[in-house]
Design a binder for these strands. Structure first.
Lengths: 334, 334
DNA sequence: CTGAAAGCGCTTACAG
DNA sequence: CTGAAAGCGCTTACAG
């Protein structure tokens, strides 16, 4: 049987109140009683029950993290950052994989509420009104990571997608490229879709390059989805000398498809990716890409959330810096 | 203010006992009272407090998962499988990244104990005696995934590493290779190191190929660690025509290093990996590898753990099938 | 410096 | 079919 606070109180000949005090470093006991209490705790190998504690304190020291897909490299980097920071602050993380559909999200939100988490980090997905309402009803702090929302009260931490894409595109232009295509997300995606496409377009415009809509190949961010976009691109636009891919997986899909057709990167076609996942450096050739500081984004999000939890004061959103990582997939045109 | 069971009891003109009964689908109330109680619950948007519930039931419906590194692609696949299964069974997952050192593991074990998790899944690492003792003291079910241990009482789910390596090596041999090297883990690693190295050796022996110890390049499983092993291999053993890498990252490191030296895969050197992570198919060329069913391993582990939790009966370990995924990195020698 | 008591939000015998 | 009461393992005024 695990021992409880009563057991140690009894064995130490003090009240449970006293035990509780030494446990929580509150004042109110002699050095002597402290010593014996501590000794008994040791003897009984007593560990406080966080559940009982949470019932009173209304704090569970745990935070819920919602991801659209736990298994992607992107999410795990962010998660790692969150987890690391949170652990150092004595918070545990419960991970929730929301999959594609909204129903799982709502179910999870309910579970998190019942389990009385102290706060929630919501990642990558758009914060639908339904979710927002549920979150509001829960009455716990929320922070967004790698996404943002129109609900001004919800702080976020993310990169400036528009600007990052603009810079990626200019990078290509400065390397002498004029025939530039993009493999992007869906225009209808307000988070990782539209802003990146818009940044791409603007960079072209600002550099006097005529915008050709047919050079924007949209679709999903994953490798297999991008594979068809890349296939398409190579087939219909052979004049293209460089492409900006809105994710590393997309960029790598292009490299793979190109290789299959005997087109070499960067000699015949240049590519720049987006994310800087681990696989960017493992790519062959190593992928030039826009780095999002995913681990750090996780940390910052956890930091914000925890300070909202502990201080109840509003926290401000944060745009986190991206940067271009030059590897070997972009060639300078002569 | 969130409403409690008392609030609904009061508003429904019944006792909390009755509310509790309808909440838990226990017998003991008329259809009529059930209806009004349900209505009031709806009106108040009442949700039970799982913490209070847990205090009584001694069940928190949460399980702790310990990973050496949450961010690796390997762990996230397993985690995803665990999470999916567990969620369907109404369990939540708290993730614990144990990093490299043991101190973090012990700290986490303590947190998990205080938070009264119902069970623990321990992944990839060797179950040191210190951990085992702590786990025993916690008195909750444990299952191992992608690792095993000498403590017979702890069930595991994993692939047969020896056999998988043996088959990978034979695959190379059957393709006509005789000069075969291995990039492996540490011989001292009883989980993913020794068994794979031994399987490799035995396959060579059984096929009449003289074992040359200097063709086994050991080190860490990660890309950057393997990069030096690969460098070494290419430099010191140019006669090698095929290599068995004990992880996909190692295999990809070899491909990268080879490319850097103008050596083409599979034309000049063949490679087979191990794991079948997502990046194996994104590799360039796509990587032939031994697949571990990581997602499924996660599911099976969760399944076992949950049945230990709910039925208190002992569960049996499981060797899960691996298989060779043929892609484009192994050439048949003429 | 110390303890008795109330209470956190539930569940579960027990009694009717 | 229903409720009063005890209790899960703690914390926290309150009183001394």
């Amino acid at each position: 049987m695990k021992s409880t606070i009563k057991d140690v109180a009894r064995k130490a000949n003090v009240s449970v109140a006293t035990v509780s005090r030494v446990l929580n470093n509150l004042p109110g006991y002699s050095e002597d009683t402290k010593r014996t209490v501590l000794r008994v705790i040791e003897e009984l190998k007593y560990q406080p029950n966080a559940i009982a504690r949470g019932l009173i304190n209304k704090r569970t020291q745990t935070i819920g993290v919602l991801f659209p897909s736990v298994s992607s490299a992107f999410s795990s980097e962010v998660l790692h950052g969150i987890e690391h920071f949170a652990h150092d602050e004595n918070y545990s993380i419960v991970v929730c994989n929301t999959a594609e559909d909204g129903r799982r999200t709502m179910k999870y939100l309910q579970v998190l509420r019942e389990k009385q988490v102290d706060g929630i980090i919501f990642s990558s997905e758009v914060l639908k009104e339904e979710y927002y309402e549920a979150l509001k009803a829960m009455d716990v702090p929320v922070v967004l990571v790698a996404t943002h929302s129109e609900y001004k009260s919800v702080p976020y931490v993310k990169v400036d997608d528009w600007k990052a894409s603009y810079e990626a595109t200019e990078y290509l232009i400065h390397k002498g490229h004029r025939q530039i295509a993009m493999i992007g997300g869906y225009e209808g995606d307000p988070i990782a879709g539209k802003p990146r496409i818009d940044g791409f377009k603007q960079a072209l415009l600002d550099n006097g390059i005529t915008l050709r809509d047919e050079l924007i190949f949209d679709g999903g961010f994953r490798f297999d989805q991008a594979t068809v976009a890349a296939e398409n691109l190579l087939l219909t636009a052979p004049e293209v000398t460089a492409v900006f891919a809105a994710s590393d997986e997309m960029a790598i899909a292009l490299i793979s498809v190109a290789a299959k057709h005997g087109i070499s990167v960067p000699e015949q076609i240049s590519v720049i990716g987006y994310d800087n996942l681990k696989l960017a450096e493992m790519s062959n050739p190593p992928l030039t890409t826009i780095a999002q500081p995913l681990y750090k984004m996780g940390e910052r999000a956890a930091d914000k959330l925890i300070s909202m939890i502990t201080s109840k004061e509003r926290v401000v959103s944060e745009i986190v810096p991206h940067k271009i990582i030059e590897r070997n997939t972009v060639r300078k045109l002569p």
